[in-house]
Design a protein around this nucleic acid. Sequence first.
RNA 1: GGGGGUGUAGCUCAGUAGGAUAGAGCAUCGGAUUUCUAAUCCGAGGGUCGGGGGUUCGAGUCCCUCCACCCCUGCCA
Length: 662
Amino acid sequence: MFLETQQKIRARFVEAVQEAFGLEVNEPVLGFPPSVELGEISVAASFELAKRLRQPPRKIAEQLASRFLPLEGVERVNVAGGGYLNFHLDRALLASALFRLRAEKAPAVPPGNEKILVEHTSINPNKAAHIGHLRNAVLGDTLVRLLRFRGHRVEIQNYIDNTGVQVADVVVGFLHLEKKTLADVQKLLQDPSVRFDYYCWDLYARVFQHYEEDKASLAWRAEALKTIEEGHGVPAQMAELISTAIVRKHLETMLRVGVRYDLLVEESEILRLDFWKYAFELLKKRGAVRLEHSGKNQGCWVMRVDSPEGETGGENGEDVKIIVRSNGTVTYVGKDIAYHLWKFAALGKDFGYAPFYRYTDGHEVWRTTAARSPKSPPFGGATVAYGVIDTRQSYLQNIVAAALRALGLDQQAANLHHFAYEVVGLTPACAEEMGVELAAEDRERPYIEVSGRKGLGVKADDLIDRLEEKALQEVRARELTQDPADQLAYARMIATGALRYFLLKFSRRIIIAFDFKEALAFEGETGPYLQYSVVRARNIFRKYREQHADFSEERLQTSVTPEQLRRFFTDAQDGTAFWELALLAAQAETVAEQAISAEEPSVLAKYAFRLAQAFNNFYHRYHILNESDAERQQFLLYLVYLAAESLSQTLEVLGIEVPERM
RNA sequence: GGGGGUGUAGCUCAGUAGGAUAGAGCAUCGGAUUUCUAAUCCGAGGGUCGGGGGUUCGAGUCCCUCCACCCCUGCCA
């Protein structure tokens, strides 16, 4: 397979340089020659070696070229240009290995023992989810799928900040603005005409407006926050009621786009089980935190934040972060430190667990509880942890890592990956469409920031609704099926495909300026384009089967011989075009590895698009069912299988399902 | 002030740990076997890769510097 061949070439290069020149070198970077006629893999390292060896690069490459063979999968090695080493692969061998890989349903890599923990979504459970949350969830979910695709054992956690300020604000809204009792809220929850998460969305905005108008009312918040954190009284009960209901809504929203979880870690349990107290003791013992006796932070426990160069302070004094407020409550970072110690099994304590939500396939989402439960699966205890958290929180994530280091957990700190992504804004036009009044200068901005406090944003479910509606129209217009259930199922897959691809095609470091027109597009570089490509390929097989009842895709593996593969892949007329498609299809694993190491799912999304493009091009150029040469027809079917199966497996990693018809 | 991010075609973005001729989608214009359903394909136009230095055989990519925009630097998260 392609990835393995690459690894072999790298390793062999190091040996070859050692043999030829007695020189120790690192594994070389592999590139791609400008066209497959020049080879499939290239190494440009001879240029660098030229200095050390005082020889022209071309001469170095020539001395190395002969030392690679025999190498499984490589047919020949030659020198091109000023000193490139170009590797020509054994096309028939690679293609048949790829066919076997795609045809076997078992994962390519057996699951390892090490557990990787991915935390994503982590929405404040006080109102409906918006597009920014969708970006987080889809990025996180795709990271999970990527890791699993490459054989890693992954646990998905969703952190629920159910004792934080944002929940407190909604409690304030119910208690003080709406004068509602616990029973009133309960009734509201049971009212089928009320979308509770939408209701809270509006209420939260109203609370903020009230804070603006009446600063004194901020005291409500402080009071509510304290009682919620202490876990007693009506505010605490109401917070529990609200957050649990909203979390359930969030799970349902995310399920619509194929995102699922294993465990909900609730902040209230971190407090209730004294995880924080325990972590606090550890930090104090190590001198990582100290109590301020004077100055602006008097009465607070703070942690010193070292600047990267080790220069602390300067004239303005050192940078510190408050961990415990002067009123004794813990900031979010403090709780996050405790949470992360538990993630790495470095706290010496564990939660209890209880089932919370069951998916239709039986998979259970668990939540943390204070009571121990013997029947739960083991959670936490990871060696590597990813946190999918927006980039604005980098400062706080650095503090968590710094705390780990302060406790001597350097290895864990190094294995803690802040998967930082940028937020989703609205284009000015979109913001105005949503009813926001913009100043002239705001219209010139690249994007308008969404604001939960102002109630400005595109709700996730509204967007998904619109996508499904549009997709349903398209499905109906095409008269693919008369069955309304099928129509709906197709529309949902197409809507999800469009949305997930839209959120994944951008690099995580750039701000997405959201626009309905772009997000609702089904043509060009979109999810539906990818899905359509696979559908086209499957249509070929379906039609072919109508004439050949005994046909199955798997049978191609034997009906096309290695001899034929060799012949068609080196055909003077079309060999290059055939080979380019197969070669691209073979790179899914290589690209997935890249996406993981760069922590950049867009790399795989872009690859899927390139593969779909290559396939559509091929589809248009070669008419398979009309092919009169039977051997050639079998070969073409073989090639369609490689491309379609590679693409559909890649789409699975992206969380994009393919409908039967489009 | 300090830390981080971004700047590539009219617009939105890629550019694979420096490599062989700067790419894609959208938009615009022109075309395609009345089919394995066109949610497709082909072609055209369009670029001082923010500016200036430097390193290198080679720089969109690395270093320095300047400019513009954004985020963080809360007893919010």
